[in-house]
Write a protein that binds this DNA or RNA. Structure first.
Lengths: 199, 199
DNA sequence: GTCGGTTTTGACCTGTTGGTCAAAACAGGA
DNA sequence: TCCTGTTTTGACCAACAGGTCAAAACCGAC
């Protein structure tokens, strides 16, 4: 249905918008900014998306879907500790490979989640509830040390997303733009959760 | 020097601005919004602060000072594990008692720290470098388990600030606006760092 | 090449925003 | 009470932002 030009331009717009929205927030971004970054004129951009809001929504919709995948992959049948550490690793990889998406999400939540509150208390909560039961079962079976499953998940999110959302601070404190904090971060997080959960 | 009226109004403005900036970011906030929240007219507000930028700067300056205090209190002469757990506890209390300040800071960092980059690689880095040496000494003396000091601090910041910055998500996932997540959070974090650092 | 649909653009409109200014209202001490 | 400095305000401005529109440019099938 969509022509080649349409595909190319909508992709360019979403790419540019991700850049702009993730560093300036929704209200802090302008349509002109996005248009320039996408190499289009403002009216031309508005030919592809009816409004600034629509671009933002399109980005969020795409993001929220992908956001849950790593947690979905947490397998009750697997070896508990390595399942959880694997989840941590996947989340950290997402932080490294998609930092703009992480910041887009963070911006949204910090500002009170005006547009994604239903998602949080809907899909997200449902999935977390479900996986929390898995964690509890593992604890009950003595396969991992006792832990509050909800705060376990909060910890994982906080720790992994920190490296994307606060990367400016991480680099400033480490003292060099050039070193890659992720290898050390991965080792550190693996250590943390292993020590926490080892029965 | 300042009259009673001046004191009252500048205080009201800063209080209102903290509310507005922390939930909307700098560009997302308007002077009118702040003025209304402070119970003043816009020109009246601009009689006390020369510009929107000036209000924001005043807030950040006040914040950055207080931000370092809990870390400064980390005492090399104390008992290592309880010093670190104490630091975690202080940071978590700040998250609970000053969530708007935390979000103001988070907004700033996420958006690339345009106005506080010097602080990050200056005062903050200096202090972290210093305290990292303390951590390393504790590790070398076998008083705590081996750990990367920088990533230890990142972990503490990420975990504690998460409860302020992402509190909407925390409450959505926990399922009720009314329960206070902090008691459980504190227990969880104490457990985490104890298990991580116990020699 | 021509023709229909697609894509692009310049000009424009409306509401908002940060900020100014001169004048009015309001202290409160002499 | 009056007088001087402080505080407050309504009216205003220029820049900017989101969005519209009609016309122009462009494309690919015939």
């Amino acid at each position: 249905m969509a022509t080649r030009i349409q595909q190319k331009n909508t992709a360019a717009i979403l790419e540019a918008a991700l850049d702009v929205f993730s560093t300036n927030g929704f209200r802090g971004s302008t349509v002109d900014q996005i248009a320039r970054a996408a190499g289009l004129s403002k009216p031309n951009l508005l030919y592809y998306f009816p409004s600034k809001e629509a671009i933002h929504t399109a980005l969020l919709d795409g993001l929220l879907e992908a956001w849950l995948d790593p947690l979905r992959a947490l397998d009750e049948a697997g070896e508990p500790l390595s399942e959880i550490v694997g989840y941590v690793r996947r989340k950290l990889e997402m932080s490294r490979d998609f930092p703009r998406e992480s910041r887009l999400f963070a911006n949204e939540i910090i500002q009170g989640a005006p547009r994604i509150a239903p998602y949080l208390s809907g899909e997200l909560k449902t999935l977390v509830d479900e996986k929390s039961r898995v964690i509890r079962r593992w604890v009950a079976d003595g396969k991992i040390a006792p832990v509050d499953p909800y705060h376990l998940f909060f910890s994982i999110w906080a720790l992994t997303q920190h490296y994307a959302d606060f990367n400016v601070q991480v680099h400033a404190v480490l003292g060099s733009e050039d070193i890659d904090p992720y290898p050390d971060a991965e080792a550190h997080l693996e250590l943390m959760f292993t020590r926490l959960l080892r029965p």
